[in-house]
Design a protein around this nucleic acid. Structure first.
Lengths: 245, 245
DNA sequence: TCCTGCATACTAGTATATCAATTTATTCCG
DNA sequence: CGGAATAAATTGATATACTAGTATGCAGGA
């Protein structure tokens, strides 16, 4: 962690904000706070900053060569997402993964993605199917290479694409915030290489059901897919006792 | 809007944050920024600040006798919820209700509340049913009095109670943010007094289904209930053209 | 030894000042 | 008279300074 921070690039606003927030098509500077948010977000998700780690606005500000203000804004956003806990006048820590919330997060995913995939199966076009297939193809090669990180990114892309096909971009925004806690727990499991092939196959089943406009089959395939990825929290908890609460 | 702001009361943290964020049972100062956020949130929802209204950090800060910093933090949080739009170096406005997002918001509610009510029907205890009934009872009298505002608060309580029964408090947190845009649109409809009686009846049906552990019936009743409250955006749009986008 | 109370050293919350970018009005030239 | 260039004003973004809680450790007494 070091060095200067990129400044003041001008880019189209990246989706941001919750359901229905769509900024009017307008240009928006990527602010310093945004950059720091992204960095911390990635660091926490990748466990480079493990749960329970103490954070200090001042120290972070010094590391990035910025003032406390943008750091503070980034931390506030992270705390809303449940990734850090801010104790006023005391300190800020990377939040421990709330085990109790993980089953609920899975329920949310199943509920929302079930609804989404049904809609997608109803209205998907051949072009949509092609998009799904291209993502799956990339996943196949990444699985062969054993690149778990890139594989996971494509996994996100697949689910996001389905939301896009269904015409529910806002639902994907919600899912992203919900998925975070699940993903953090999953990062702790050893890179189960064999699992990637399973995922590819499950994605193929989902794609086939959507392509054939088989609403019920699509839902069933998605339910099976989401049910298979629940991390074994009980085991993780004994292995990393102070990462959970 | 006037006068000083209450300072530094100490209260238990009010639920806040997304799924799985549960602040460790701890005392937390209600910060100035929190107070301003709550105030602005209420003002926007009650349409005292109508969509399209210009906001200025400086002016708000002066009104509340605080500096721009907490005002800014409150506005940032509001913008994440899609209640204000911040145009950098230009201005901040109360967001217009994004009509395009309302159907999607309804989809989310149906999906999540459908799942929730099913679970509630499975595990509800007699005490849970009593809680629901007491809320419905209050709604009956409020409907008779024609107190639409308090009625709406009890409506929220009813749905939150079901989430509580199901053991999905985090889902309610998500629903709150999704409901906001729908509620804003609904506030524009004339206080349809007759509608309140319908709502009470629909709630009774939901309660009965939960009490009888009729999972399918509970879902059906909830779907009907949620389908009935979709505001007629098309009509509203002609009546309040610059409240929407 | 263990508990209590105070002093100290932090940390986050808030205020104020400065910087930079965008919008808007105005002026000057064609 | 009109349009482009420019200057002024507005306001968001960032930096710095200050205030006020909170935790911790040590001293002293039970």
């Amino acid at each position: 962690m070091s060095g200067h921070l990129m400044q003041a690039a001008v880019v189209p606003v990246p989706a941001a904000a919750a359901l229905g927030a769509e900024r009017p098509a307008k240009l928006r500077r990527v602010t310093t706070a945004d950059a720091i948010f992204d960095r911390l977000y990635a660091d926490i998700l990748a466990l480079r900053m493990p749960p329970g780690m103490q954070l200090q606005e001042k120290r972070i500000a010094e590391e990035f060569n910025v003032s406390r203000t943008p750091v503070r804004e980034a931390l506030l956003r992270l705390s809303e997402g449940g990734l850090v806990d801010i104790y006023p006048q005391s300190g800020t820590v990377v939040s421990r993964v709330p085990v109790s919330a993980i089953p609920e997060a899975v329920v949310v995913r199943k509920s929302l993605e079930g609804t989404t995939v049904e809609r997608a199966a109803e209205i998907a076009t051949p072009a949509d199917i092609a998009r799904l297939e291209s993502i799956i193809a990339r996943q196949r090669s990444l699985a062969a290479l054993g690149d778990t990180f890139a594989f996971h990114e494509e996994d996100e892309a697949f689910h996001e694409a389905i939301a896009g096909i269904a015409g529910y971009p806002g639902i994907w925004t919600i899912l992203k915030t919900v998925k975070v806690q699940i993903d953090r727990a999953r990062r702790l499991t050893l890179p189960a290489l064999g699992r990637m092939d399973n995922v590819v196959h499950e994605h193929e089943l989902i794609r086939d059901a959507i392509a054939g406009h088989h609403v019920e089959a699509a839902r069933a395939a998605m339910m099976h897919h989401l049910g298979a990825v629940i991390p074994d929290v009980a085991e993780l908890r004994t292995r990393y006792p102070d990462y959970f609460c």
